[in-house]
Design a protein around this nucleic acid. Structure first.
Lengths: 344, 344
DNA sequence: GCTTCCAGTGGGAGCGCTCCCAAGATCAGG
DNA sequence: CCTGATCTTGGGAGCGCTCCCACTGGAAGC
């Protein structure tokens, strides 16, 4: 039970000092104090110092909410991750994006709000965020085809940066990874190693990344004069990769190469292959995508397409900051790079 | 280049409607409109409906900043993750905590602010957050011994909930996992399987979890009349686990069991063991902690101590909400449970 | 019939800050 | 010594909302 309010304050209820009190103590007007604080011009050296002294003595900290109301800037940027259930966020991919975004926002002195738009409730809150301008800008990730978030972003009179390009919409500002190129390179590598019956475990084809990676795989095989197999769809998780591999093995027992659209599914494929007694890479070569920890830990370590995930987050945040500052940045596509380990 | 300001608005510069405009349109006073909006009592049915109609017609959305200023509540809770470099956050553990916290905060209609207090800059911002009451409450995680954040939390006149108990301080409100019990159970299991020379790859001993898990290991061995080995310290990452395992193998070539303080290190140990030609579990049995994806994917799949990570996040958030509402919740310790796979 | 009560209402004073603007101070040039 | 330009200064009007309070009128109680 609460014995009182917050929380049995020992001393006086001690309200935070306000700018007025600072001004009074420094013997200046509130305007001058404000200018001194934001080190704006038109403040004499003497008064500036007086204000600084008063701030120190009073332990004054500006109230961000009041500032936000007056400036009409919240001082926060939101990162919203779409997805029909929150577990999508468990993918370590997002953690790395966050690290990058967080660092960049820190430089611009913006806070990071994280919104998982998984439930209906979550989506509703994101809509409210957009409509009420509850943040200075928004970064949008993991949108699926016909994702309602796309429409909200469209209508919102607010800076919005996309992470990846969702299928079915062409955002004006985005940063993406060269998914097609990466997948193509991975597949070409498989072909170069003499594989001729190469299958794909692709991610959800209603995501931009899923589709682009499948296209890269397909392009590479066609260019090499080989027949692409129909895509075996997973959902980017390890179990789905294992299941897809099992299906593939059943339908195409003679395959000798697999391109998995991410490392989780690649690891799942490895597990199934191991259980099926197929040697990797001797019988079947496997390449993944992402280069997360799981690729290094897998047995055998997974050859994979490295993508600069932290940079993705950082560049999204930087682009957003540019936008917030009223400029018009150009979209960005980050390069990928094949990392060869022992699975192919 | 910015052609104008935000962003070449097609129509009129269209300011957001305010509550006053809603009130005027509905033919009521601002007070009544406000009450209707927050469905407070003392509003006649007719006026309430008039307000709702006006809201709909105008597309009114309340301004959260203004509300925050008036109510002195920000409507946001912060999750602060300490650590000397941001990569600590790449651990999928945190992603799951976030999922849990996010869901619980959503229920209370609070936003989630994420602060990685890795750099000095980051820590400074957290301090400012505390001092300026930039959030209604804070959840603190991954604190190390003598972590400056502990002091800030102490002084802050703000609800603070700890995730785990940092060594060297006894927070009043926390939710933790039964680390000692889990580690004890894991070690007992090893002993029950006939292992007599059991080593520990422990996490950083300046963290609460690292220390508690080592203690559980030690207790179990002592209780069984066996000698604990001196702790081989890692930093919760896969490579550190691999290195620790190598060191262990060099110093105690005859060991037959390993308790790793988390799955990442367990996976690293597995890798080293495999490279050294030791069969798992035949020669050396390995148990991990966490039950993350990596435990399932590892080869062989890792026997590990499951901890309810999402629940941890959720309970932290709930406890924080309770605190914000002026009540005094009791600390919580969540149970763990051994999950046996094939590594032990 | 007269208090008493209370649902319903609107006025107005904040919340703590920014920023425009008018007015005073300072200083140079003529 | 005066004019005008430049630097300083503080007053005051917001930003958009909540909430206290004083006021009304009709229902209830005696």
């Amino acid at each position: 039970m609460g014995e009182g309010s917050w929380f049995m304050a020992e001393g006086a209820p001690r309200r935070q000092p306000t700018l007025d009190e600072v001004a009074e103590r420094a013997g200046v007007s509130r305007s001058v104090a404000s200018r001194a604080l934001n080190n704006a011009p038109h403040v004499s050296r003497a008064k500036r110092e007086a204000v600084e002294r008063a701030v120190r003595q009073l332990g004054y900290v500006p109230n961000p909410t009041a500032r936000a109301l007056a400036t009409r800037q919240t001082g926060a940027a939101a990162l919203v991750v779409s997805g029909e259930d929150p577990s999508i966020f468990a993918d370590p991919f997002f953690a790395q994006v966050i690290v990058g975004a967080s660092t960049a926002l820190e430089e611009a002195d913006l806070h990071l709000m994280l919104c998982l738009a998984a439930s209906d409730r979550g989506r509703k809150r994101v809509e409210e965020l957009f409509r009420s301008k509850g943040a200075d800008g928004v970064m949008l990730m993991a949108l699926r085809e016909d994702d309602p978030l796309a429409g909200m972003a469209e209508e919102a009179e607010m800076p919005v940066v996309f992470g990846g390009r969702p299928v079915g919409s062409a955002p004006r500002w985005y940063v993406d990874v060269d998914n097609v190129g990466g997948a193509r390179e991975a597949t070409e590598y498989l072909v170069a190693r003499g594989r001729t019956r190469v299958a794909a475990i692709c991610g959800r084809l209603d995501t931009g990344a899923g589709r682009a990676r499948y296209r890269g795989y397909r392009d590479a095989l066609l260019a090499a004069g080989l027949d692409p197999l129909p895509p075996q769809e997973g959902d980017f998780t390890e179990p789905s990769g294992a299941a897809a591999m099992a299906a593939l093995l059943a339908n195409h027992p003679d395959l000798d190469g697999v391109f998995a659209a991410n490392d989780n599914m690649g690891a799942g494929a490895l597990r199934t292959l191991r259980a099926a007694g197929r040697a990797v890479p001797a019988d079947v070569a496997v390449v993944g995508f992402d280069d997360l920890t799981v690729a290094q830990v897998a047995d055998p370590p997974l050859t994979t397409v490295h993508q600069p995930i932290t940079a993705l987050g950082r560049e999204m945040a930087r682009m957003l900051v540019t936008l917030i500052n009223g400029h018009d940045p150009t979209p960005l596509i980050l390069p990928t790079r094949l990392v060869t380990r022992s699975s192919a």
